[in-house]
Design a protein around this nucleic acid. Structure first.
Lengths: 341, 341
DNA sequence: TTGTATGCGTTATCAT
DNA sequence: ATGATAACGCATACAA
């Protein structure tokens, strides 16, 4: 069957058939109370009959507003971001906004491209969770006065909703130290792909230093950001002269892959090696052993970031005060324990 | 800082400053070879200088095309759909299309609302993975001649990219039967929320009947579709007069939650109960025990569905022949085994 | 309460 | 190679 034309009636068609002007139809659509009840009913009948739908592009052009917000996430397949996306969607919808979700797959080029795309589409505001450690994107948006907020990590002058990444990592590391561990490693994605990872490494290092635990260059093992695969990295690490008894992973996905890799190499968790994650994605409690991790309340953070953005859209200005950090929590499960003696 | 105005230059501003007509600017933007090189360079300089960006709404209004496709998924937090979304995005981008992803969270009301929203936005085509067991949505799109394809399960007359859900479930069930199981149950979301689940139940039932295994009303246990939580359901099931030794779950998320619930109740997997999943999400191999499941190649399916849709957009007609089912596979891991004696 | 007319930022069809 | 101008579908200020 051919379907090339798909005729869509316009406001003009409706007006003609209802024997009113297009202004009246428009008025009925946007301020029904301003049109006589009887007239409105007549219009509505025609609308239903022809399945009329307002043309978004025309409306956006006329009103100069799209009622749309753009949301850039690092990866669709990481549950922490989908949790968050749910929050964003729910809060946005509550206020009549639509959300355009785009996944950059940890690629800085794509991030820029998607921001550019959002701007062409004239989204009313943008929520950003990007790598972009230099903060170019954030700065550009700020300069061009595009309403935007950061989520999960702050960049430049944008308002930001996130946990204190440094402190959270510090806390996690300290927990491992108190268990008696003396040899550590952190696994994470390249800093250039995730500034969150850099901050978490900072907290990790700072804590070790505060406890006079020597750090060495190999203490950070880089994994590929898109696959989270870390078999080779882990193998090299565990065969080194000073293999760690505790591993801090930059997020749960990395942690889960780390555990799998370790077990393939014959290590038992947590008897031989403890593994600490970050995020507390829904899946964390289902893997084996259940993952000890840092909780970030993704859904709530998504809602809050959206709420902050909508405030900016409403008031036309950035919030006066910086937003306090979101509360993080250590969720202790079974992937961590005392070190082997 | 206030940011209420954010002035965006138009094609007119560029034209004036470049001392050419807006037609020339437009031409340069869309068919650069049709404008003198020197003029083009001058225009480009002005564009860069002012950060000009084409107004999407205006362009869409003038061209009557949005270069956008809408994609409705049942839930963002299920990795099978995010895998798939990646495929859709990649294929779409390859051909200059953008993707609007919307998650309906297993809610029929929201599904309709999001389709309506897509239509207002005049997306060029729609990819649908919806519950809507009656197929209203699919039928409506078909009638209104909106280019659309189904993904994961067929509805109405739309072309569809999916595995053979009935056959795949049949195969999985048969595998369990051959292991020696005699008492079965299936866990799934309400049929009204997922037609895929209904089809999988059909394959499950048909296989049992073919092997003369009695089925009873309790053989289907319904779990809440949004949380996948099934503690109560499992508890009731295992305390019944004829507790199953094998459980077929309608998807991996349900399977993983089922396993957790069973273990909380003291059952060992697969020693006491075997659990079979559906999807083979990336997480399936990391849970404990690693999940036996039916593989659906999500990423490839996403690409294929998009490719089919783009073909329709290009040719203006639905494909002549029905698309052959995508190959499924049984991935045997450790959550299934012989029944206890 | 309703209608008329203008503008929103592009593309596209003519001219030149 | 470039310019003038009419759509595109809606909102809105102003008139009636």
């Amino acid at each position: 069957m051919t379907l090339n034309k798909s005729f869509q009636p316009t406001i003009r068609d409706i007006a003609r058939e209802a024997k009113v002007s297009i202004a009246t139809v428009s008025r009925y659509l946007n301020m029904p109370e301003k049109v006589r009840k009887e007239t409105g009913e007549r219009i509505q009948r025609i609308i239903d009959k022809h399945n009329y739908r307002c043309n978004f592009a025309a409306k956006a052009l006329a009103t100069q507003r799209t009622k749309t917000i753009g949301y850039i996430i690092p990866a669709v397949n990481n549950q922490i971001y989908s949790e968050c996306a749910r929050g964003v969607q729910d809060e946005a919808q509550l206020h009549g906004y639509q959300v355009f979700i785009a996944s950059a797959e940890y690629n800085r080029q794509r991030e820029k491209q998607m921001v550019e795309n959002f701007l062409e589409r004239r989204v009313d505001g943008i929520i950003l969770t990007v790598s972009d450690s230099m903060g170019d994107i954030a700065q550009k948006l700020y300069q061009e006065k595009i309403p935007a907020v950061n989520l999960f990590n702050k960049q430049g002058c944008l308002p930001c909703v996130s946990v204190d990444n440094v402190q959270a990592s510090y806390d996690a590391t300290e927990y491992l130290i108190k268990l008696g561990h003396k040899s550590f490693a952190m696994l994470g994605v390249p800093f250039i792909a995730s500034d969150r990872c850099r901050m978490r490494y900072e907290g990790f290092l700072r804590c070790l230093q505060d406890h006079d635990i020597p750090t060495h260059p190999q203490s950070f093992v880089q994994v590929s950001s898109n696959t989270s695969d870390c078999s080779e990295g882990i193998e090299k690490l565990m065969n080194s002269s000073n293999p760690p008894t505790a591993i801090f992973a930059s997020n749960d996905l990395v942690a889960i892959n780390t555990i799998s890799a370790l077990r393939r190499l014959g290590f038992e968790i947590p008897k031989d090696v403890s593994v600490f994650g970050f995020d507390d994605i829904p899946m964390a409690k289902h893997v084996w052993p259940p993952l000890t991790t840092v909780l970030q309340p993704g859904y709530r953070m998504g809602r809050q970031a959206t709420s902050v953005l909508l405030d900016i859209l409403r008031t036309g200005e950035h919030p006066e005060e910086t937003i306090p950090s979101v509360q993080h929590d250590l969720i202790i499960r079974e992937s961590t324990g005392v070190p082997p003696r």
